[in-house]
Design a protein around this nucleic acid. Structure first.
Length: 455
DNA sequence: AACGGCTCGC
DNA sequence: CTGCGAGCCGTTC
């Protein structure tokens, strides 16, 4: 969208809109893109195809999604802002009482001074610059030790984030003409091939906390429509199964079992998945996610709040049970070192200039990226293919719906009530068929009167 | 304006 | 010492 304020857009973020007042400008940008990129792509067939058959067609689809926008109930958010202000003021007064003076609850520096100088609380960890950290995990630990002030600040921070970023800001971003909010999607920002979203970012709307989900309740369909959210189930783990070819993991997905539960049964030696405790499942889930991110045993220990030795034995046991995953990780690292890049299933490349760095930290970071990028990037390729398929169907059949948002593994639509069933089924079919992997792709489709309910 | 610290999402 | 983003506020220059 034109007319942004102070914030500077990078070249990659310049929104392209077909059939807009900027059509001539857009055509010029597209031409310059071709001139800049094509010479680097044409010699490599997979890159050339990703560009001309995926990214370029997607441009038009994204442009339409941006222009469509989504209805946000401003009155509901403004009411939430007022309620948050009251609660936050309450928390502030309580905090001043405990601290014995007033201070800015939004200032990590002032909090650090009060905690570690005045109240002499223990320093749990430090920021990269050496200051005592007051991050969420630190406040949580201090709160668990029975300190009241960290608990208050924790609560205050959560509410402050919701208010300043979402409930205050989103109503200001509703377009006067359309009455909807219109994000911008960027195709060439994230190194892995993901889209990013800004002004407003619709890819980080809260969902995990109860208060957060109230914000999603303000995202509503147009009158006569219902909200439909379709998201890929465990897509990155499925891609890990595909890329590694690990038999145990392939079998788990082929049988359609709860994969975290299956992992827990394997790693913790339960005789059947039914015996897995909720704690074991939670640990297995952390291991699975950690693998996708290239996490070390140290990181897993921190995540689970267990000893380093215990975490290492979990990881060892995991690789013993899923040897294909171990081999995949090793060969991915090797490939990254030898070629200087890694690839997705569709041949999208991520170059890793620091993979052979003499700086151990940088090299390790590049190795983690090498592990993660093929999975994150393949998932991005797949949902982009799905968006093209859905878009082609929309153009051909003109179903009564609008594609409104993409959130990495999820597509959100508003669909006329009369055609809800048939449209949902078609969306599921097109998304599940967007790629043929060694495991099935599974899409969960939810329907509701707002984005929260559709999950 | 730039940066650090933090927190929201997948 | 787990990957990829956007964006807020406070602080510093």
């Amino acid at each position: 969208m034109a007319g942004k304020g102070a914030k500077q857009l990078t070249f990659d973020q310049v929104p392209l809109e077909a059939a807009s007042p900027y059509a001539a400008e857009d055509a010029d940008i597209t031409l310059r893109l071709h001139q800049a990129l094509w010479p680097k792509l044409e010699s490599e067939p997979s890159l050339a195809r990703l560009y001309s058959e995926l990214e370029v067609p997607l441009l038009t689809v994204l442009s339409k999604i941006e222009r469509t926008g989504v209805v946000v109930d401003s009155a509901m958010l403004e009411q939430q802002s007022r309620e948050l202000a009251v609660t936050m003021h309450d928390l502030e007064q309580q905090a001043y009482e405990i601290a014995g003076r007033t201070f800015n609850l939004g200032s990590p520096k002032q909090i650090g001074h009060i905690f570690f100088e005045e109240l002499e609380l223990p320093v749990i960890s430090k920021t990269p610059k050496g200051a005592p950290s007051t991050a969420e995990s630190v406040l949580q630990e201090l709160a668990d030790q029975g300190h009241d002030l960290p608990a208050l600040i924790l609560q205050h921070r959560g509410l402050s984030k919701l208010k300043s970023t979402y409930t205050d800001k989103l109503p200001l971003m509703v377009d006067r003409d359309s009455g909807r909010v219109h994000t911008s999607y960027h195709q060439a920002v994230a190194a892995t091939g993901r889209l990013s979203s800004s002004d407003p970012n619709l890819q980080n709307i809260p969902v995990r906390s109860e208060e957060g989900r109230r914000i999603r309740q303000a995202f509503i369909p147009a009158p006569g429509y219902r909200m439909v959210a379709a998201d890929y189930s465990q897509i990155e783990l499925r891609i890990m199964a595909h890329l590694s070819g690990d038999e145990g993991l392939l079998r788990a997905f082929a049988e359609g079992v709860d994969v975290h539960r299956a992992t827990a049964a394997e790693v913790f030696g339960a005789t059947s998945p039914d015996e897995v405790t909720s704690d074991q499942r939670r640990s297995a889930k952390a291991i699975n996610f950690g693998l996708i991110y290239g996490m070390s045993a140290f990181g897993l220990a921190k995540q689970l709040g267990i000893g380093r030795g215990d975490a290492q034995s979990y990881v060892d046991l995991y690789f013993e049970r899923y040897p294909g995953v171990q081999a995949f990780m090793d060969s991915t690292r090797l490939e990254a070192h030898e070629k200087g890049y890694v690839e997705t299933v569709f041949g999208r490349r991520l170059y890793l200039p620091e993979i052979n760095s003499r700086n151990g930290m940088r090299r390790a970071a590049a190795e983690r990226t090498a592990i993660n990028a093929p999975m994150q990037g393949t998932a991005s390729d797949i949902i982009k293919r799905a968006m093209l398929a859905v878009s082609s169907w929309i153009e051909k059949e003109q179903p009564p719906l609008r594609m409104m948002m993409q959130v990495h593994d999820e597509l959100v639509f508003e669909v006329r009530e009369e055609q809800l069933e048939v449209c949902s089924a078609k969306i599921r079919e097109l998304m599940e068929g967007a790629a043929e992997l060694k495991v099935p792709l599974v899409v969960d489709v939810g329907v509701g009167d707002n984005w929260d309910e559709a999950h």
